[in-house]
Design a protein around this nucleic acid. Sequence first.
RNA 1: GGCGGCGUACCCAAGUGGCUAAGGGAGCAGUCUGCAAAACUGCGAUGCAGCGGUUCAAAUCCGCUCGCCGCCUCCA
Length: 479
Amino acid sequence: MPLQIYNSLNRQKQEFKPIKTNEITMYVCGPTVYDLSHIGHARSAVAFDVVYRYLKYKGFNVKYTRNYTDIDDKIINRANKDGVPWNEISERYIKAFDEDMAALDVELPTFRPKATETIREMIDVIQTLISKGFAYAMDGDVYYSVRKFAGYGKLSGKNIEELEAGARVEVDERKKDPLDFALWKSSKPGEPSWPSPWGEGRPGWHIECSAMSQKFLGDTIDIHGGGKDLIFPHHENEIAQSEAATGKPFVRYWLHNGFVNIEKEKMSKSLGNILTIRDALKNYSAEAIRLFLLSSHYQSPIDYSADALKEAEAALERYYRTLERMERDWPNVANAPIPEEVKQEILKPFIHAMDEDFNTVAVKRFIFQWVNDVNSLMDFASRTGIDEEFQKTLPRAALIFKEIGGILGIFNRNWQEYFQEKKSRSRIPADEIEKLIVKRAEARTNKDFKKADDIRKELEEKGVLLEDTPKGTVWRMKI
RNA sequence: GGCGGCGUACCCAAGUGGCUAAGGGAGCAGUCUGCAAAACUGCGAUGCAGCGGUUCAAAUCCGCUCGCCGCCUCCA
């Protein structure tokens, strides 16, 4: 069963056939670094992180490029507002973005170029476009002639006549046509600038992706990703630039992720509901945020809410409790080796789900079906002893959890780590809890259940749960 | 106005032509427990926004209607 990918270019799920047999080239639009990244950036990053991990898992050598847009009007505006040099802004937020990605366990792409490191290549592409008649210089600016490119609109499904009719932005006098967009912008005194054949200036937004993609991955690439909002005009313009310049197809498969809404509303500056990754991490674990993001298909809109995140935390708790029970109570059974052919067989449903346009929701379902199965078997084994079914199933589940954990970047910690981290967030010191547990044990021995229950209730109000097990009382953090 | 998407149980969310429509959360009942918690077991859509149509067969394809959303302007 080959990998099927939904391609925005023809709005169909189609079989994925890379240009080369073993190598895949993939480009994803990275952030414009003028502010902290928000949960929407996290979704895009996590979605394509899973694509990247899965393609590697399938055995491909993936060359993955994600850029930093580190020169842009928004960066300049922010710098003016803060009264600092523009590159201080971009450096600050590149660092912040990298930290956020690391916190979310997003793997580093192969190449992470900055726009400002690729200026020379951008100028080359612009010159090619001018010499081929697709672009024209005008008083230090360079514009792309949209009407010269026959395929304009093929990605976004727009046609030029309607765009013309709907054009309502202030028309730049120097443009020959309102639809034309800037490849190069002349700079005003005091603004950041680079020398070019057209004078001092800076690149337009769209050209950087064409230049960086070409520089690091070649003229035609396998996969290009980004948020749905980038389809028009950004990706449409990238196609126009790259294909006009090289005369070759730019991208074989376009992938676009859906938005994150906040409590059913679109995130926007005007609504003031931008949720930064940092703020989300203050309330929820990175792993829960990842699970939340992967609990819907990457193309669907999703709704960030306290309920949804709590649900993700609860699911993780359930998973790690199961893992704990397996590895603590039956380590020898759980870690028994699995023959390679059995491994291939039991992984089939997961592979099949991921091959269907990265169906992470189905993968999650399988994980929890295994969770249910092993819990059921462990219940049975605790009562009546180990049987053949148990010995067969437990190591298989352990293997599946490990393999899938690597692909999703979730479910891949060990249980000690998971519970330790949660306990470290307790507002009451551990030794104080331990003391209360001893006190409660005494009360229980004396059949003073009122006192025992009061202690448990007291701790519960502070977020600590006590559980009485055959091996004594243990404590956990409430979700 | 143009383009695109969505509407599946109380909530979240898979399934996109054919076995009893996944899974999670919440709820109820039971097992276990001093009581709980966890775990397990059982219950829960005769139905997939509505109405028509195609088909031996439709949540799944087609048409219409209703509702919601995104893009068309910087935006993941």
